[in-house]
Simulated scan of single mutants.
Amino acid sequence: MNGDLPVPTPVVLGIDDLRRLPRATRIARTSGEGIRLLREYRDRFVDELWLDHDLGGDDTILPVVTLLEEAAFHGHPFRIGTIFVHSANPIGAETVVRSLTRWNYRVQRATAQ
């Protein structure tokens, strides 16, 4: 035994109604599932969070964004390395980026495969 500690698997969460997100360790397909997923990881560090704006029908990522904003407002933001916003809706994506950046989350626009 060489005494090396195992390297933990990065936690990569995705909220997207259609994309596979091959790097994701867990995927939620609706905003409600996304909120439940984030609450499940509330006290853990999330390396990456991938967000799509439009989630099918009238569902959008905005309830998830509200959850993240409220946590930061109350002084207990989610511990997330980087939030990637990958949406075909440029106005919606920019809204998400601006909203979360305002609360000091590290946010980037990205292209999802």
Score class of each variant (00 low, 15 high):
residue 72 A to V: 03
residue 103 W to Y: 09
residue 83 I to F: 11
residue 58 D to G: 15
residue 53 H to W: 00
residue 19 R to E: 01
residue 93 A to L: 06
residue 90 P to E: 09
residue 40 E to A: 03
residue 24 A to P: 00
residue 37 L to R: 09
residue 4 D to P: 03
residue 5 L to E: 15
residue 74 H to V: 06
residue 73 F to W: 08
residue 44 R to W: 06
residue 26 R to E: 11
residue 107 V to L: 00
residue 5 L to A: 12
residue 86 H to C: 03
residue 84 F to I: 09
residue 51 L to M: 08
residue 10 P to D: 01
residue 30 T to M: 04
residue 17 D to C: 11
residue 17 D to F: 06
residue 30 T to E: 11
residue 77 P to S: 10
residue 113 Q to V: 14
residue 2 N to C: 14
residue 88 A to T: 05
residue 98 R to G: 06
residue 100 L to T: 08
residue 21 L to Y: 04
residue 51 L to Q: 08
residue 99 S to G: 13
residue 99 S to L: 10
residue 91 I to G: 15
residue 93 A to S: 12
residue 12 V to C: 07
residue 21 L to M: 07
residue 18 L to S: 10
residue 108 Q to E: 11
residue 30 T to K: 03
residue 40 E to T: 11
residue 59 D to T: 13
residue 72 A to E: 00
residue 1 M to W: 12
residue 42 R to Q: 14
residue 49 L to W: 05
residue 80 I to N: 11
residue 66 T to C: 08
residue 95 T to Y: 12
residue 65 V to T: 02
residue 43 D to Y: 06
residue 45 F to P: 09
residue 74 H to E: 08
residue 101 T to H: 02
residue 113 Q to P: 03
residue 32 G to Q: 14
residue 34 G to A: 03
residue 38 L to D: 09
residue 45 F to S: 05
residue 109 R to K: 14
residue 12 V to H: 10
residue 75 G to N: 14
residue 15 I to V: 13
residue 40 E to H: 08
residue 90 P to K: 04
residue 35 I to E: 02
residue 42 R to A: 13
residue 86 H to Y: 10
residue 74 H to T: 06
residue 107 V to M: 01
residue 77 P to W: 04
residue 13 L to P: 09
residue 77 P to Q: 03
residue 30 T to P: 12
residue 80 I to L: 03
residue 7 V to P: 15
residue 16 D to L: 12
residue 34 G to I: 03
residue 16 D to H: 15
residue 64 V to A: 06
residue 71 A to P: 06
residue 87 S to A: 07
residue 73 F to Y: 15
residue 42 R to D: 11
residue 71 A to I: 09
residue 9 T to L: 14
residue 5 L to C: 15
residue 19 R to D: 13
residue 98 R to P: 03
residue 72 A to W: 02
residue 25 T to K: 01
residue 70 E to C: 14
residue 9 T to N: 14
residue 13 L to Y: 02
residue 109 R to N: 11
residue 3 G to W: 05
residue 45 F to H: 10
residue 94 E to V: 06
residue 88 A to N: 15
residue 39 R to F: 10
residue 15 I to D: 00
residue 72 A to Q: 12
residue 35 I to H: 12
residue 94 E to S: 02
residue 31 S to P: 08
residue 36 R to C: 09
residue 20 R to A: 14
residue 62 L to Q: 09
residue 46 V to T: 13
residue 69 E to M: 00
residue 88 A to D: 05
